[in-house]
Simulated assay, not measured.
Amino acid sequence: MKKILLVEDEAPIRESLQEILEMHGFEAITAENGREGFYLASTQKPDLIISDVQMPELTGYEMLELLQKNADLMHIPFIFLTSQIEHEKVRTGMNLGADDYLAKPVRMRDLLTAVENRLQKSERIKLAFDDKINDLLLTINKNVQHEFNTPLHGILGFSDLILSSQNLSPDSLKMFANAIQIAGLRLKDTLDNIMLYRSLLGNSE
């Protein structure tokens, strides 16, 4: 069941929209201002947020700005509710990261269509991202042994030469040390790429 956060300071509108969403199979959680909405978004991780623009304590714009600064929340689809859809207000919301606008009073068909469209788009984006992650995993698994073994052989080989050789010239010692450093940097790049992959995989779950 998809979870939708509804942020609206007018109780009759909030309760009416909550009832519509729940009647159509969604889990609807509600907040009466932007501050409470941001808290619920942080703790409940909804699949979509519907929010009024003008609210006490924290406006819809201000809440959206906070969401966009949070890596765990910035991907959540966001729909604004407003009594006046003006070009400047729409542009402001879209620039902040809003996905859609709905005019009050909201018709049930328009609400459900917007919700379904945004959830479907979000799911397509997630699937595409998962595909890229899987491709990256296959590439890493295919190359990881080679990418580890090659620099390791270099590090072990050149360090063994240094330890076993007698009376190495300063130039030879510098050359071997440089080769070890290059191999170490290559190994570090491989580890950095693996950590990046793990980070991306964690964000996709």
Rank of each mutant, 00 (worst) to 15 (best):
D189N: 15
M195E: 14
Q18Y: 02
F129A: 13
G202K: 13
D171M: 03
A11C: 01
L191K: 14
E27C: 05
P77N: 08
I49W: 07
S16P: 05
K69W: 11
A128H: 09
K121E: 04
Y197P: 11
H24E: 05
L21M: 05
K89W: 03
A71N: 15
L48E: 03
V53R: 09
A28H: 05
N134G: 15
I79D: 06
H153N: 14
R107I: 02
I140W: 13
S172F: 06
P170H: 01
V106Y: 05
L138S: 11
I133H: 12
E22D: 08
F38Y: 05
I125E: 13
S51P: 04
L73C: 06
Q145Y: 07
T92G: 02
G93V: 00
T82Y: 06
S51V: 01
Q166S: 13
R124C: 00
K126N: 07
T92P: 03
F26C: 07
L152M: 14
S16V: 07
S172V: 12
S169Q: 08
S164N: 15
V106W: 04
L17A: 08
M23F: 13
S172M: 06
N203K: 08
N203S: 11
I133N: 15
R109H: 03
E15W: 00
L173T: 08
H24I: 00
E123Y: 11
R91Q: 13
L196N: 09
D130Y: 06
E57Y: 09
I50W: 07
S165T: 11
P12E: 00
E22P: 11
A183P: 14
K174F: 01
L187T: 15
